[in-house]
Simulated assay, not measured.
Amino acid sequence: MDPKLASIENDAGESPKYLAARGGMFEILNQILKSTASSAHGGSDGRTALHAAVVEKHFDIVEALLRFKQQLIKETGHQGRTPLFYAASLGQHRTVKRLLELDTSIAYVLDKEGHSPIHVAASKGHSSVIREIIRHCPDSGEICDLYGQNALHMAIIGGTAHVVSIY
């Protein structure tokens, strides 16, 4: 494979790495990762290849990308959201655990609305994700958004009172 091909985006602004990650094409992604150190990996939706793999629940792709480059976990996509934010939003506690094992600082990254991963997990009632975040980052429940609201506020506002007992 010509390494230059991995950096060419299609008309929609999607790189081969992004398309392979989004489509769950493990072998193709693996070949791209082996052949090039290209940082081109975006999609037309402003997400990275890792974002796409998390959203599409391609956990083998997530692991491959994390092994390839640990800096991917800090990259933000649409609305300033990290892969941890997407995993927390979707209730993917195993992915949350894996991402936090690599770097706990990502639990404190706020999106453009001022929400952290624990905020979104609380608002959606993903108790296993909240437990995982608190296990790795015990003070993360104190993070406040732009309106001074922490995860407990978000749980109450989101009508997910069952997660209140976690605090």
Rank of each mutant, 00 (worst) to 15 (best):
K74E: 14
Y108A: 10
E14D: 14
A87G: 13
I106W: 05
T104W: 03
T48M: 05
G43N: 05
E9N: 09
E75S: 07
L146E: 12
Q71M: 08
S116N: 04
D11K: 12
L152K: 12
N150Q: 08
P138F: 11
E75N: 10
R67P: 02
Q149N: 13
H119R: 04
R81G: 07
L50K: 06
L90I: 04
V109A: 11
L66Y: 07
L99C: 08
K112P: 00
S35L: 10
G114R: 00
T36M: 07
E27W: 09
V55R: 03
L50R: 03
I8V: 15
G43A: 04
D111Q: 00
T160A: 13
G159W: 06
L99R: 05
H153V: 04
Y108V: 00
L110G: 02
G42E: 07
I73W: 02
S44I: 00
S123A: 11
G148D: 11
K34E: 15
A87I: 08
D145T: 06
G13W: 02
M154E: 14
R94D: 14
Q79G: 04
S127H: 11
A64Y: 02
I106C: 06
S127C: 09
Q70K: 14
S7Y: 01
P16W: 00
Q71F: 07
A107T: 06
E56V: 03
P3Y: 01
V109C: 09
I8P: 10
P83R: 00
I8H: 07
N30V: 00
I106T: 13
I118S: 09
G114C: 07
F26R: 01
K124N: 15
A161I: 10
L99N: 09
I157H: 11
I156S: 12
G114P: 03
S123M: 06
Y18W: 04
Y147N: 14
G42I: 01
K17E: 03
V55L: 13
L100Q: 05
V120D: 08
V96G: 14
I32E: 07
R135L: 06
K74F: 12
V163E: 12
Q70F: 10
H119E: 09
D111R: 01
D11L: 12
M1G: 15
M154H: 15
G141A: 10
K124C: 07
Q70D: 13
F26N: 03
H41I: 03
T160H: 15
A155Y: 13
V109G: 04
I61A: 09
L29N: 06
L19G: 04
Q149D: 10
F68D: 13
R81L: 08
V96C: 15
D45V: 01
S15R: 00
L152Y: 10
K57L: 06
S128Q: 12
M154W: 15
H78F: 14
D145I: 06
A88V: 10
M154S: 14
P138C: 13
A6M: 05
G158C: 08
